[in-house]
Computed example of a mutant assay.
Amino acid sequence: MNQSDGKKLDPGRQVWILVVLGMVCIGLEVVVHFFMRTAIGYTHIFYILLILAAVWYYRKALFVAIALVAATFITSLAVGDFNWATLLRAAMFLVVTFIVAWISEERDRGRLEIVAQKEAIEKEHYALVGYLSEITLRIKNPIKILRDNLLAIRMEFDGKIPDIDIVKMELSTQLAHAEQILSNFQELNKDVVEEHTEIPNAYRDFLTR
């Protein structure tokens, strides 16, 4: 899963940070545990390495935890103080790493889902704007022309008796124009319905009626 680049260090710097922390942890394990013969206190520093690795690389950080567990086991066996406390520390390394990795993974997955939903909403918004623009081009101008033509027909009645046959012919022409406008609108609605499958069936039937 890709992480958010805006809140993420350069991958090269991440690796160097983990390498340096890993060397510090191994050095403490060797110097403090192997030479100074104590296993108390210094292992808390290991969690810095494990948490950073889990935040940046999710469950791959378990390999780092396993490496620290192996180093702890080796020095404990060499020193001769391998006991239940050693097993408990090893278990905590693995458990803490897994929990932090899981939380980080879910957090970033949620962030990506939000971004995807936002992009989908924006896409629908642009589609709606395009739909309205198409309506304007296909319907607004023809309706204005139809209105002007009907107004001209009405004005023929002012001050004189119009030829009924001519009026009927003109009205028939305007009726054909109105039917063409309605046909264009239905065709446009059909295209929208076929493109957007998420439209509920009730609205789908209404738009294509």
Results as ranks from 00 to 15, higher is better:
T197P: 10
H44T: 15
T43M: 15
T38N: 15
H44K: 15
R109T: 09
L49Y: 09
Q14P: 15
N201A: 15
Y42M: 07
T38A: 09
I166L: 07
Y131A: 02
H33N: 08
M1I: 12
F185S: 03
A202D: 09
T97Y: 01
M1G: 11
F46I: 15
K118W: 11
E106A: 01
L175T: 12
N2T: 05
K168H: 02
I199E: 00
P162Y: 00
H44L: 15
N189F: 02
D10T: 03
A90E: 06
R107E: 00
F98S: 00
R111G: 05
N149L: 02
F46W: 14
A120T: 12
Y126F: 04
F185K: 07
R109E: 03
E106T: 08
Q3K: 09
K140F: 14
A39L: 11
N149D: 00
D148Q: 05
H125I: 07
V32R: 03
E105L: 00
T72S: 06
F63C: 13
R111H: 02
H44Y: 12
A90N: 10
D158A: 11
F82N: 04
K7N: 13
V19M: 05
L94K: 03
L28Y: 08
L146K: 04
V129T: 08
E156R: 10
P162S: 05
N149C: 02
N189R: 01
L188Y: 03
K60P: 08
R204I: 12
R37K: 12
V69R: 01
R13W: 15
R111S: 03
A67R: 04
K144G: 13
E195A: 14
A61L: 07
A53N: 12
S76I: 06
G80E: 04
R154Q: 13
G6D: 09
K118A: 14
L137F: 06
T38S: 13
D205C: 11
L175P: 08
A67D: 06
F185T: 05
L49W: 06
L137Y: 11
I51T: 12
F35P: 13
I153C: 01
V30F: 10
Q174A: 02
V79E: 03
H196N: 02
I66M: 08
F46T: 08
E156S: 10
I103C: 01
E195M: 13
F98N: 01
T173S: 07
W56N: 09
L87A: 01
R107C: 04
R89H: 12
A202F: 13
V100Q: 00
D205W: 12
E105R: 00
L171K: 10
I145D: 04
K8M: 08
Y126A: 07
